[in-house]
């Protein structure tokens, strides 16, 4: 069944003064799709996300969600970045409810949502802890639960697991896939870790460097859960690596 287009990026251009960062980027993301964007460090991935959320004004082209220009007040967009953005004065539970409180959801609903997502990321027993009592992976779990609790239609993730060691990263990646499957949220996941992109994405967008263009779009039809040691996985990973090769 063909899914409708959720996000459409059309001839996007972004310049900082005379410096061309994003050069004529066009692609679309389907409803409920998990799209991974890979590219060398400093290739403008974050600039792209910031343009998408309206944090930066774009120089040319357009970005739409459901055919309308992005409006953070209207569209439910959640953004998770590499640095842990938990509010230090709130407990785990209050942090997970944070976005719902911002949107003035009813206390009962906020509590229920928080319960659900704390449970899903395994934080229920840490609900009364403050962020400075938590480990790095737990902090990122709080942020992920906070994002999913808002039931976002679009989830943007900018190298969210960049600071974690390999084992924790695997665990959180699996949790993320689980949450994504249950919620049906559209995900745009940016990473410079090729293995991570091949493990998570239904489609992989490979970017080139300075100015950023789309080098190639690769459909990833490997069945989930994926085995990182399987020959097909390794083959796809090598294919993406060949396209990037920034070293």
């Amino acid at each position: 069944m063909d899914r409708p287009v959720k996000v459409k990026v059309d001839h996007l251009v972004k310049k900082f003064d005379e410096l061309l960062v994003l050069d004529d980027i066009s692609f679309s993301v389907k409803q409920g799709e998990f799209l991974c964007i890979v590219g060398p460090t400093g290739c403008g991935k974050t600039t792209f996300l910031n343009s998408l959320t309206g944090l930066y004004d774009i120089t040319g082209g357009s970005i739409t969600i459901d055919g309308e220009p992005v409006d953070l007040k209207k569209h439910r967009v959640a953004y998770i970045f590499q640095e842990y953005s938990t509010m230090p004065w709130l407990t785990v539970e209050q942090n997970v409810q944070f976005a719902l409180n911002l949107k003035r959801e009813k206390a009962e609903k906020a509590k229920k949502q928080a319960e659900k997502y704390m449970e899903l990321v395994g934080l229920t027993e840490f609900r009364d802890y403050y962020p400075d009592q938590l480990s790095a992976s737990m902090l990122q779990r709080v942020v992920i639960a906070r994002a999913f609790a808002t039931e976002p239609e679009l989830l943007l993730m900018d190298e969210p697991y960049g600071q974690l060691d390999t084992e924790l990263r695997y665990r959180l990646e699996n949790e993320l896939l689980n949450l994504w499957r249950q919620s049906g949220t559209t995900v745009i996941f940016i990473t410079h870790n090729i293995e991570e992109a091949v493990y998570l994405g239904e489609r992989i967008l490979v970017l080139s460097n300075k100015p950023t263009t789309i080098k190639k779009e690769i459909a990833n039809r490997l069945p989930m859960p994926r085995d990182i040691a399987a020959p097909e996985f390794i083959e796809l990973r090598n294919q993406v690596t060949e396209l990037i090769k920034w070293w």
Partner: peptide, 19 residues
């Protein structure tokens, strides 16, 4: 970073202040 996170979660300027 916290202000950015709140903005991304849809907080108005006023809510960024209070929250």
């Amino acid at each position: 970073k916290l202000i950015g996170a709140a903005r991304m979660l849809g907080a108005s300027r006023r809510r960024v202040f209070t929250h």
